[in-house]
Design a protein around this nucleic acid. Sequence first.
DNA 1: GTTGGTATCTGTGGA
DNA 2: AGATACCAAC
Length: 764
Amino acid sequence: MTPTGKFSYLDELNDVQRQAVEATEGPVLVVAGPGSGKTRVLTYRIAHLLEKGAAPWDVLTLTFTNKAAREMKERIEKVVGPKANKVWAGTFHSTFARILRVEAEKIGYPSNFTIYDTEDSKSLLRTIVKEMNLDKNAYNINTVRSRISSAKSNLITPKLYVDNEELRSQDRMAKMPHVATIYGKYTARCKRSGAMDFDDLLYRLYELLQSNPDGVLDKYRKKFKYLLVDEFQDTNQLQYAIVRKLVNYDQSPRNICVVGDDAQSIYAFRGATIQNILDFEADFKPHGIRVFKLEQNYRSTDHIVQAANEVITYNRRQIQKKIWSDKGDGQRVKIIKAMTDAEEGRRVADTVLEQKNRYHLRNSDIAVLYRTNSQSRIFEEYLRRYNVHYQVFGGLSFYQRKEVKDLIAYLRLVVNPRDEEALRRVINFPKRGIGNTTIEKIGEIAASQGISFWEALPMAPASARAKKSIADFIQMIKGAALKIETANAFELAAYIAKRSGLADFLKNDTSIEGMGRLENFNALLDGINAFVEEDTVIDTETIPDKSLATYLQNIALLTDFDVKNADGEYVTLMSVHAAKGLEFKSIFVVGMEEKLFPSFMSMDTVEGLDEERRLFYVAITRAEQFLTLSYANSRYRFGQMRYNEPSRFLAEIPMNHVESTHAIPSSDRVENMATSAKVSGSFKRRTSANGPNSGFMTDPKTFKPSPNEKIQAGMKVLHLKFGEGKVLSIDGGQGNRVATIFFQKIDNPQRRIMLKFAKLQILD
DNA sequence: GTTGGTATCTGTGGA
DNA sequence: AGATACCAAC
């Protein structure tokens, strides 16, 4: 079949891709390896739907980032023209917020509800923990928040939480038995404040569809005739439950297509579960699901692809697939070892320069990826020193800066005075003589009467001066709220900036940082002005509504990515998580050390390690041509020098894909241990308690050594002392063969063993 | 209520 | 090291 005429875009697809695009009716699962043209399939599929006569507004595409949604729309537009803009394509959060905006009142929320960001949530939780007189050290706010978040992501309401013995006993073991109560109070407080947190945007939509007031469920089932979900491996139970509500019912055509890669699932901490992919297959099996596997990688050269393939085999469960590339062998993986984090920074920057010169790479071809955002500093330092332009993504986004959040809090308050977190933030900033005692009293009144903080404000038993301040504050907010119908968002913001004293406060701070803050503050005002003046594309939509409420609702879901200018020539610095879906000619994955990558937080469980390994898989598969991994023997953390061993992931890359001038990490380590022990007396040698000398890992009675000639790379073998291992590679001539073997259970897992002396039993 | 100094704590990822 | 929480003195 040779597609002709207007279907010519089909020519740009390989066989499997085309089948996935053309299977428009009924349930479809696309398992897409890295660089396999996943986005191309999704966009062409939508284009194909439109060409075949579907109306743009019949199609709903859910992504995880605004960037992905935006990209998709742009690419659809290239194929089908401007009607692409009428397709519903957005993030789960923004799309659901948009629907909730319309339907909120059906579930007891105002349509101008506030969206609480993580800081707001944590601040509210802190208040609740305090009010309940609980020990805030026992109730770590991040832990509490994530418990509540994952409860919501698993469809567990406060009521269900109370009755859930498993969760309750986990809480008791963690010495925080009152999480259930906190969860209940938190939910009530959000509702009373007319606020939804990020999880609520999903949960409340589910609740809406579930309770189905005024046949609202049917309305959306009819509206979205085709549903597509990107990065399905990163959905949580709640998201999948919503998807099922929308498409999986009697008489439904079940036109749903989900695209994902189990090997790239890296958001389990956010409640995502690979189980969703497996469930999807089972749930739609009775309805003729079709599964397509995209296995050809168009992004990377072979050494990189094979290294990635090999690394991921160390994970337990996975959907079988073999990613391959026909782009030639390309360069081997380069490994940089450094003594200190500073040396790592310098050598990475050196290599950046070298690659720019030798291979004529541009800054924008290069990215430095790290496990934690705090690692960015040292690379910034050296790149700046070398005069290489760079851009850091992640970390504090523009909208999270204090000066920006302060003004936004005022604006939030004008739109929704019940917004307690906004109110608490600005009631005494700039200072107007309303202190903690007064604020606490107001909180108590609100709690005892079951009213919002705002409504309790005038009842505050305070000094005459404080009362006057409060009255004035109320007046200011009410005054601004009155203008909401007549003034546009910018006029209101400018008014509040002046009237609140914020603008003056910032102008009076002449320090360097203070000037920076003023700049940000003004940039925010400019941004609001631009929103009013132009057809600003904020999310993926051209927003027709210029109200302050619309503005606030949109920026609440923006991240750093969406603000930074995407053009320009700079080296990209970002976390591995943030790099998902991106590609660069040259990738540096830095900080390849035990306890950092894999993170110490994830090291004690197999599931945790598997997720870290998938994260590493994502990192290395971002590279098209050059992949450099680096680690440092020591680095500063919390003002203290810490020593780490090279990451176990390094040892999982077979030697034949690694640049040979670099010795393997485990043998490096022996040298480095010796030198650093001399240099620094405090260096702690690993105790051998569970190391190789602590005795046999294998029962000598059942151990049957195999003939050494039979040992080959890739085999699983058993060693008397070291236990089970995997032969990574074999080198050396006949009679002198040396095997590099990875033994999972020992401290320095990668070992070089002379086969003529070794006793090894082949396991498979 | 506000200010400024000191103790304490933090140890991943992000919509 | 850097942010935040807490506390004593104004």
